[in-house]
């Protein structure tokens, strides 16, 4: 079974720093890593390959230095890697990104299954998977937390939903987006990692012409949405002491939580 895994290089947002004066994000020196969910996608793909045979192919869109996540993917057991890299791809929204990726996948052609991480930590949009599936006109299963069985006709997966899960059978080819519950990703193996750095390693770099897209269809120009502005929200703490009887202070606190912009506000 041939499996394509979509991977993305992202800034490591877990140790993000803000400029104490301006409150702006400090991008300098931000370490780049493979998007965490994508590690689980790769692990799933390599596990399936170990059972069924075939190839795992990692695909990424990004600047030249994004080759590092492909090297890492090969260290984890991918057999081939493809970097879609072109100045023209920059500034893409999810529409243009999913289009570019799907054209790259069409050029690879020979696949049964596509696996990608549920979402990327720098954007959290969770859109690329379903959009790529629609460009390619194949079935999709999102929030996958278990792969029960897979053969050339059908895959059975579990999907994590808000209040439980769903077991879904999908006709192949299919695109899965997976969440971290699915598995524990392996670390790269030194032999595979070192081989992937060698000149003869099977990593291909494709530009816009290679995958047959026009520059007006991709990147910022091909995007439907555009960033108008970015700003840093004001997180200054008020240091307010709530006063009154126990009953009063607690109800005051709950009121404030209800009005806060947190995801639990509506449940209170």
């Amino acid at each position: 079974m041939n499996i394509i895994v979509l991977v993305k290089q992202v800034p490591n947002t877990t140790n993000i720093k803000l400029d104490p004066k301006t409150g702006n994000l400090i991008r300098e020196g931000l370490e780049s890593i493979m998007n965490p969910d994508d590690l689980h996608a790769l692990e799933a793909a390599v596990k399936i390959k170990d059972k069924t045979g075939g190839k795992v192919m990692a695909v990424s869109m990004g600047p030249p230095q994004a080759v590092d996540v492909l090297t890492q993917a090969m260290g984890m057991g991918a057999d081939k890697a493809f970097l879609l890299s072109d100045r023209a791809f920059s500034g893409a929204d999810t529409w243009a990104t999913s289009y570019t990726l799907s054209k790259g996948i069409e050029k690879i052609k020979d696949y049964d299954l596509i696996i990608c991480g549920h979402q990327a930590i720098d954007g959290d949009t969770a859109q690329i998977g379903p959009q790529v599936a629609d460009w390619l006109d194949i079935a999709q299963a999102t929030y996958v937390n278990d792969i029960e069985s897979v053969d050339e006709n059908e895959i059975v997966v579990k999907r994590r939903l808000e209040h439980g899960f769903e077991r879904l059978a999908c006709k192949m080819p299919v695109l899965l987006t997976v969440i971290s519950e699915l598995n524990e990703p392996r670390y790269p193996h030194m032999e595979q990692l070192i081989s992937a750095c060698e000149q003869k390693a099977p990593i291909k770099v494709w530009n816009a012409a290679d995958i047959g897209v026009k520059t007006i269809e991709v990147g910022l120009e091909g995007s439907n949405t555009h960033v108008i502005k970015t700003f840093t929200p004001n997180f200054k703490r008020q240091n307010e002491l709530l006063e009154g009887s126990n009953k009063e202070v607690v109800s005051d606190l709950i009121d404030r939580l209800k009005k806060s912009d947190t995801t639990i506000a509506y449940r209170l």
């Binding site: 590092d68 090297t71 990692l193 750095c197 060698e198 000149q199 990593i203």
Partner: peptide, 9 residues
């Protein structure tokens, strides 16, 4: 061809 640096990886 673009390749990663083995020492960095």
């Amino acid at each position: 061809k673009i390749r990663s640096n083995a020492e960095d990886m």
